[in-house]
């Protein structure tokens, strides 16, 4: 094995070690439903500084991509299927999300609040 190859392998292991998994805490679950290219509920209130689980169910006959620049999340949800994403912990505020393939109708916001939802 050449020494350049050895260095690349060592570097890859270093990078991977920075991504070691951590034990997940118990999380609150929220649900979003996509129907007629519209998210319901359009406004979802979640607790601040806490990681939460959001289950998105796509009831349309086409795929949609849940996208949020604010939440830094992106996930394709195929027709008639569900997908789970985790968000947070986040500081209080309003975080926009949208369906990338139907951005005019499929829009909503996640409100992160200090008060219990």
């Amino acid at each position: 094995m050449q020494w350049t190859t050895r260095i690349v392998i060592a570097a890859s292991i270093t990078l991977a070690s920075g991504l070691m998994p951590v034990i997940a805490e118990e999380t609150k679950v929220f649900a979003l439903v996509l129907k007629n290219h519209t998210f319901m509920p359009a406004t979802l209130t979640i607790p601040a500084n806490e990681k939460v689980k959001i289950i998105i169910e796509n009831k349309d006959d086409t795929a949609e991509e849940f996208d949020s620049f604010d939440l830094n999340r992106e996930r394709v949800i195929f027709a008639g299927k569900s997908a789970t994403i985790y968000v947070g912990p986040l500081p209080p505020g309003t975080y926009e999300y949208f369906g990338e393939y139907h951005p005019n109708s499929a829009r909503g916001q996640v409100i992160v609040s200090e008060e219990r939802p």
Partner: peptide, 8 residues
């Protein structure tokens, strides 16, 4: 990885 809760 954080999207699917593998890392925090």
């Amino acid at each position: 990885l954080s999207q699917v809760d593998i890392i925090s």
